[in-house]
Each structure stands twice: as C-alpha cells, then as structure tokens.
Design a protein around this nucleic acid. Structure first.
Lengths: 112, 112
DNA sequence: AAACAATACATCATAATTCTATGTATTTAA
DNA sequence: TTAAATACATAGAATTATGATGTATTGTTT
C-alpha cells in the first residue's frame, strides 16, 4: 500500500470522477469500483469514505437518494450540477499537479 | 496554487530527488530549485521545509554540514547511503501511485 | 443450524503532515 | 536608508485520512 499521506487531497477527485463515469452509486459500490480500477492498490476506508460523501453532500457537490433493499438501507449518491463543474476543476488541478511534480522529480526528462 | 493537501506525502520525495540530482544543497537553495523546476507552481514554505529537513536528518536520510558565509550560517544537506536507497523506494512508490490514480480517474483510457 | 464472511452504514479520537504566523538576523539592491 | 531577498527556526492551527469501534443484514460454508 501507498504511504498514507499520498492519498490526501485525492479522495474527492476520485469520488467525483467515479460518479461522473458510473452515474449514481452507493458508498460500498464506490469502494469496490476504486478497488477494482486500482487493482486492489487503493482501498478506501469506510472511516474515510462515508464522512467524505457526507461532506461533499453538504458542500452541494452530491445529492443522495435513500433506497431500501430488503431491510438494509442504501444511500445512492449522484453529482449535482455544481459537482459536475467542480469535477472538471479538480481533475485539471490534479493532472497539472502530477505534470508539475513529475518535472520536479525527473528533471532528466528535460529533453523530451 | 494547488489544493494544499495534494502536496502532502510528496515533500520528502521532492527533497530526496532534488538532492540526488544536485548533490549538497541548503534549505533555501532547495526552495529555489523546486520553484524553478515547477515554474513557480510549487513554493515550499519554510515552515514546512526546515522541519522536514530536520526530520529527514533524524531519520538518517540526510547529513548536514554547517558552513559560515560571512556571519550567516548555511546548513548544507546531502543524502546518506540510506537516503539514496530510500529515494529509489519513494520514487517508485510515487510513480506507481500516479499510475494507479490515473487509471482510477481516467478509466476511458482503458484501451491504450 | 451455526459460524463466518461480506455487505452497508456510521462516529469519534488519533495520527500525520503541512501551513500560518511569528521571530531573528544578514546581505543586497533601490 | 529603506525595502527586498537571503537564511534559518519554532509553535499553534488546520486539514484530512486512519483505526477502532459499533450496529445490523445478507450470503456462504461447514
């Protein structure tokens, strides 16, 4: 697993992009999708994911639909308009950051 | 500037790689080099950099040579053997992380 | 039937890291 | 002579994810 700190600042971007790709999803489903796409390398903790979803809902990035599956509740989250807009910003920022840090760390790649 | 959290976990890798490239450097010089290589996008704060250097010294990743320039002190840092080894690990971890998060966030790139 | 794993949510104290603010002091440029 | 740049440092605040813990249902294995 990765140094725990590397993931910091990326949870929101991950959730926004996963939801943008897959439409409405519930927490556990997001956990599984991220696990699958990362080949088991990024395992979101429930102690991180559920509070993050709540926070993003409060910020108006997500809305929530509660559905009962038998006796068990599921909270489906989906992007709001604001969430879709912010997703673009977050993604650009992350990609820019990755490009920049690559330049800082691999200056030998100056040539290409 | 980037969301402050994105940089988390990357400070050590940055310092290790900058020192590996440039040999011995002092704090302010590292700040300038990172600023230059990142086109002003990554501005290490002295409140982050100096404590980080001290911590890495404590961990045995760096050694320090104090030099007086006139009346002003300069603390040159350089990689230890352990620092050189850890640099490789840190770098691999970061590159793996970047590759993984790119996969999670850009699943449309499945094809290539 | 019982036991265990997986599903599905949640909260809270803790840890880890960086930032802001603040401080000191020298050197260089305007 | 005044401001900016150089060069270090510390301490409290902020942010965020983790670990521990809790509840409860559903599916699988023995």
């Amino acid at each position: 697993m990765y140094s725990k700190e590397l993931l910091k600042g990326t949870l929101s971007v991950i959730v926004l992009n996963i939801l943008a790709e897959n439409g409405r999803m519930y927490g556990y489903e997001i956990f599984q999708k991220v696990k699958e796409l990362s080949d088991g390398k990024i395992l979101l903790k429930d102690g991180s994911l559920y509070p993050a979803l709540q926070k993003m809902k409060k910020e108006g990035l997500l809305t929530c639909e509660e559905v009962y599956i038998g006796k068990r509740i599921r909270k489906y989250y989906l992007l709001t308009k604001k969430g879709k807009e912010e997703k673009v910003h977050y993604l650009e920022e992350l990609q820019d950051f990755i490009a920049t840090i690559s330049k800082v760390i691999n200056p030998q790649l100056k040539i290409s």
